Simulated scan of single mutants.
Amino acid sequence: MNGLNWTNDGPDLIVHGDNLPALEQLPDASFRLIYLDPPFNTGRPQKRQTITTVRSATGTRVGFKGRSYDTIKGTLYGYDDSFADYWEFLEPRLLEAWRLLDDRGTLYLHLDYREAHYAKVVLDALFGRECFLNEIIWAYDYGARATKRWPSKHDTILVYVKNPATYYFDNEAVDREPYMAPGLVTPEKAERGKLPTDVWWHTIVSPTGKEKTGYATQKPEGVLRRIVQASSAPGDWVLDFFAGSGTTGAVAGKLGRRFMLVDANPDAIEVMRSRLGSAEVVTLG
């Protein structure tokens, strides 16, 4: 296997390979923030295909003012989200995350309702219950349309710190959000906005928006921006070893943080290489 030869004064890095052996090559306490968005164990393939529309005199789609368009299908990105023993897969990687956090570090583990309650038990054991900081609910406005139960419209992000006495958290650095009832606060407060709570209302990545990469399960930059702002400072190293479309790196780079992204999926590496052109790409093999 090619070594990573990682140092904290090196370049931003995209690593193509199995994340567990990659993590085992890294020194203890190397990262201030780790964000993980592992497969949710849905039991089904996850796919997303990019779609582009272009003006055409003979197009099959009709849009604004009767103009004609052709639809062009792009690359299909996907992965198999099914594990016979999900926690046998995930637990050793969470243990590595604990080892790699520095004394002021924080882990954000992003899951949905299928595994979040099991994750809380596992993380209590690995980190200690005293290191639990928050359960964040990310609520969104698109997705399931269930008719025989309440539709699932949220994910859970569990937040654990390495050391409850020394962890880094700067809520003043976080972008503020509008008050839901601005008339109940002073005009000054309404203009400034309020600090977010542990319930985050944020839309998914728009299928037709500028932010989209076409990668399945891509998370919006707004959610990662809040995480990176609060739990790291400029110059700190951020790690995501289920990197997917590279949103963590995109946000970290814009906010002046350093980043390492790891993924075994060639589609993910292709997307990240295009999205994060300044990062160095290393293949483990």
Rank of each mutant, 00 (worst) to 15 (best):
5 N>W: 14
5 N>G: 15
11 P>V: 11
16 H>N: 11
26 L>M: 12
26 L>V: 02
28 D>F: 12
29 A>T: 03
38 P>Y: 08
40 F>M: 04
40 F>A: 00
43 G>I: 03
43 G>V: 15
48 R>N: 08
54 V>R: 15
54 V>P: 04
60 T>K: 11
60 T>Y: 05
66 G>A: 04
69 Y>F: 15
71 T>P: 00
72 I>D: 07
80 D>S: 10
93 R>S: 03
97 A>D: 11
97 A>P: 03
98 W>N: 11
99 R>C: 05
103 D>M: 05
104 R>C: 15
110 H>G: 11
113 Y>H: 14
113 Y>D: 15
123 L>K: 06
123 L>N: 02
124 D>I: 01
127 F>E: 00
130 E>C: 02
131 C>W: 03
132 F>M: 09
155 D>Y: 06
156 T>Q: 03
161 V>F: 03
161 V>R: 02
163 N>T: 06
165 A>H: 03
166 T>M: 06
166 T>R: 12
170 D>K: 10
178 P>K: 06
181 A>V: 06
183 G>K: 07
188 E>D: 04
190 A>D: 09
192 R>Y: 11
195 L>T: 05
203 T>R: 11
205 V>S: 00
206 S>C: 09
208 T>F: 10
209 G>D: 12
217 T>L: 11
220 P>V: 10
220 P>S: 05
221 E>N: 05
225 R>W: 02
228 V>S: 06
235 G>L: 09
235 G>P: 10
243 A>P: 00
250 A>R: 04
253 G>Q: 05
258 R>A: 02
262 V>W: 01
264 A>L: 13
265 N>V: 07
265 N>Q: 15
266 P>Q: 02
269 I>M: 05
270 E>W: 12
273 R>V: 09
282 V>I: 14
